[in-house]
């Protein structure tokens, strides 16, 4: 029982990271129906920005987190403007392939500048462990949960209560109609990329802090996993992404905990395939026919 609880804690910490990345995926998909495969690499860039801020400029962790989020939201907006906007009226496959191109571009540009060697992310906190019986909860687990849930609450607030959020929902519902109502579609899409990318950056910084090691290809696997998480919850649906992330994290922890750590990634992808077969719109998705 204690082991089960411990594994749930491990899974929730990992899952909240997936959730943060998945939110960006799902927001971008919701608004322009693009699976932004470069999203995992923005997460990597975020981790490196924070790494340099902490190790060279000796900024405190939270300052580095916020600057990394700002830097990556800028990067997200630039990527959208340069790579995706010119293709907005092309078919979706073109944009998807461009996204994969952007992903490789970010990975290998970073590799050129920072070298492919793994780096140690500076430890910014003194670690405290809370032990209940045999269950150990570290201050890192708690920090990851607090930061990711705070960010999710802020996101919910932005989407549901602000004007930007309202226009985001409108654009995702019907781009042309939104434009006719006087909503600046370009600005709204930029805002979506900015917010999504900053969440990915936050996830990257948290992972750096949590595991203590970063490298230029660290975004590939979490990027794919977050994509799965977004599909599990229902791509395009914001609470679905958070939900899917947690489910995936816990599933992985339980699979490893049962002694099948070698099958962990396989199970994640099997879950994706099952969801696509049984309920392609995701757990929280509604079965509406696609508008043409």
């Amino acid at each position: 029982m204690e082991i089960l609880i411990q594994q749930l804690i491990n899974g929730i910490a990992l899952g909240s990271i997936y959730a943060l990345i998945a939110l960006g995926y799902t927001m971008v998909y919701g608004i322009i129906q693009l699976i932004n495969f470069a999203h995992g690499d923005i997460y990597m860039v975020g981790a490196f920005v924070a790494f340099f801020l902490i190790s060279i400029f000796h900024l405190p962790f939270f300052a580095a987190l916020i600057i990394a989020m700002l830097a990556c939201s800028l990067l997200g907006v630039i990527i959208e403007r340069v790579a995706y906007k010119p293709l907005r009226n092309q078919n979706r496959l073109t944009a998807l392939i461009t996204a994969i191109g952007v992903s490789f571009f970010l990975e290998y540009t970073m590799m050129y500048f920072v070298k492919p060697d793994p780096r140690a992310f500076p430890a910014s906190f003194k670690l405290h462990n809370i032990t209940i019986g045999n269950v150990v909860i570290s201050s890192k687990d708690i920090l990851i949960l607090i930061i990711s849930f705070t960010l999710m609450l802020i996101l919910t607030y932005i989407v549901n209560r602000t004007k930007t959020g309202k226009s985001m929902r409108a654009v995702s519902f019907d781009k042309d109609a939104a434009q006719l109502m006087g909503i600046d579609v370009n600005k709204t899409i930029s805002a979506t990329f900015a917010i999504g990318s900053s969440l990915a950056a936050a996830a990257g910084v948290l992972v750096g802090m949590y595991y203590g090691q970063i490298d230029p290809l660290m975004g590939i696997m979490p990027g794919l996993k977050a994509f799965i998480a977004a599909v599990i919850g229902g791509i395009g649906i914001i609470p679905g992404a958070a939900f899917g992330g947690l489910i995936l994290g816990v599933t992985e922890a339980l699979v490893s905990g049962a002694g099948y750590s070698m099958l962990r990634d396989a199970v994640a992808f099997v879950v994706l395939i099952l969801i696509l077969i049984i309920k392609p719109t995701g757990i929280l998705g509604k079965n509406i026919r696609e508008k043409v």
Partner: peptide, 29 residues
Amino acid sequence: QDFKPTLTRIKSANPEVIYLPGYYNNVGL
């Protein structure tokens, strides 16, 4: 990068020593 689930499993087996023949990048983590 995440070894905690498996380490939790190892911990529950109560070993007196862990033999870990690996490379430094993984061993460190």
